[in-house]
Structure formats: C-alpha cells, structure tokens
Design a binder for these strands. Structure first.
Lengths: 165, 165
DNA sequence: ATTAACTTTCAATATTTATTGAAAGTTTAA
DNA sequence: TTAAACTTTCAATAAATATTGAAAGTTAAT
C-alpha cells in the first residue's frame, strides 16, 4: 500500500474510533496525524493536511493540549508554534483514562452517593433502588480504582498486569 | 431524598453518562429505568415514564435487546411484551464490553493490519509510520485480549483481578 | 377470516454537536 | 512603537444524530 493511502486510511479510522468514544472527529484526526508525523507540525500544516478551518484546528489542538496528550514547541527565530504528540501508546492511554476518570466517573459517583439515602413510602421500590444503585456505586468505585492506578502507575504496571492474565 | 427525585436524578445521570460513551440518551435512560424497576415494564410504561415517543422507545428497546442487556418476556393471556434487564452489574459490564469489542476494536485492528505493509519513497516517513501503527496494533491487541477475557470470564475473574491490585 | 391489540418502520422534524471564517487579540523582531 | 505574523474567539452555518408520530405490519383470540 502506498504511504499516502495508508496514512489517510489511518487518519480516517482513528477519527471514526474517536467519534464513538466521545472524542470529536477533528480532534482524533489531528492526534492521528501528529502520531505518525516524525516531526512537529504547525497549525497551518494540520489545516492543510486535514482540510479543516483555522478555528477548528486551533480549538482542537488546544483541547488536545488540555488533555495533556499534545505539546507545543517554540523555535527560536520562528513565530509559529509547532505541535507534537508523544509516541508512547501506553502513556497516551494513561492520559486519556485519567482525563475521562475526572470528567465522567467522578460525576456519576457523586450522583450515586447523593441518591443513596432515598426514602419512600413504597418499601419494595426503595429497596430495589438501593440495591441496584448501591451495587453500581460499588462496581464504579472498583473500576475507578483500577483506572486511577493505571493512570498514575509507572510504565510497567500495565504490562505486568497483562502478563498475569 | 424522595424516591421520585432520586429515581429521576439517577435516570438523568445515567443518560448523560451514556451520551459520552456512544450510547444514546434514550437508550441509556431506558436501561436505567429497567435497572431500578423491580418488575418488567411494557413499552407503554417506558414511554410514559420517560416521556418519549413510541417509535423511540421501540427502537431503543430493540437496540438494548440486540446488545444482549435487555430481555423480553411474554405472559400468557397478555399481548404486551414485558422488558427487564439483569441486575448483575458485572454481567452487564461484560455484555457491554463484549459488544464494543466486536463493534469497535475489531475494525480498528483490521485497518491497522491492512496498513502495516506500507511502502513509500520517503524512508523516514514510512519507518515512523510503521513504528507507530505497529505499536498501536500491539497495544490494541493486548487490550483486546483483556476485554475478551473479561467478557468471557466467569463471574469471579474480575473480582479476583481487582483483589490482586 | 376477522379484528382488536399490539409492534415496527420511516420520512419529517427537532435537537445537538461540529465547523467555518472573518474579526479581534496577541506577540515579537526591527 | 509599529506592523507583520501569528493565535484566539465566537456568531453564523452546516452536519450529524435523535426523536416523533402516523401509517403499515403483525399476531392471536374469537
């Protein structure tokens, strides 16, 4: 397969995967592009390569920086900013899971805790409700623990875990 | 907190969580409702409770059945179908991860394999490309293995894993 | 075979989310 | 300090996604 074709296929696929995981297409595609690029790219180059507008490129680059998976680089004598992403996939996975934990697991745990002390005239309903939300909270906390461990771990932790399985 | 309030809060929160995980709001809310309901519900009851249309309810109930996390029940002498979902959270997590593995991990692995034999005049680009996509494939396969093991495992597997950590 | 009770479908519509591009803001070399 | 080179913002617009509801389809008791 030709390089250009392979590259486009990859960017495309990564974008699609991103979409079904709550990462928007442009963001996932910018990330894909930076992943396979051997050198840092400017906003201009990213716009050009992905055929997206300046605003779109800018916003999503900033989002990726926010997520801690893209870094900017200044070069002396150059006004432009150059962007790159780490090529260590495990590190990337750690950053992403850390981010999602904060944004998604924390809020749902908060709700599950809030609703734990439900009271109602209907005994059966209240009991069922407490059972289910309690289980859910328990499970979520456990998963949360694993993700936290993963996102804070040294590089080998996950591989060691995989080896055990 | 009153039962009604707690229930609505839960359905709401579960819907929001679903949205950021590629499960649409109605689908997640129907699931939440069935989770906390002590008895199976009809389409009618679901529509009423969540204030959604017949078509919407029907389509999402079918999707949940497709995903293997909701079951229908016929009752003799009754024309209506009753729906329920298992209350075992771990089992639910297994079903969901199985489904997503099939729908999302398989396709991306396929692409990563396809593009592995890239050829191009530019040595540096091709090499970087192969490195990154190769790593990605490797990592994805490992994660895939874990998810598969999880989704096929007996109930205790995951708890045992958690205990180890 | 009929029909009432239900389920499914799908084109129209509404809602949500992403994208654009032009204007405003900022930085830095001279 | 200026002004060219760049970055950021955001209201308008487009695109994607979800929802409705009415009509068509199906089923099962009589």
């Amino acid at each position: 397969m030709e390089y250009i074709e392979a590259k486009n296929k990859f960017i495309q696929a990564w974008g699609t995967l991103g979409s079904s995981w709550g990462i928007n297409k442009a963001m996932a595609q910018i990330h894909a592009l930076l992943l396979i690029s051997p050198n840092p790219l400017t906003t201009e180059e990213i716009m050009e390569e992905l055929k997206i507008s300046r605003g779109n490129a800018n916003m999503n680059i900033r989002a990726l920086i926010d997520w801690g998976i893209v870094e900017k680089e200044h070069r002396i004598g150059e006004r432009k900013e150059f962007f790159s992403t780490g090529k260590d996939i495990l590190e990337l996975a750690r950053q992403v899971s850390k981010e999602r934990r904060k944004r998604e697991i924390d809020p749902i745990l908060k709700v599950l805790e809030q609703i734990q002390d439900v009271s109602g005239e209907n005994e059966k309903l209240s009991k069922e409700f407490k059972n289910v939300t309690g289980d859910l909270r328990n499970f979520t906390q456990k998963v949360d623990g694993v993700i936290e461990k993963f996102s804070k771990s040294d590089k080998n932790w996950f591989y060691k875990l995989l080896m055990k399985l």
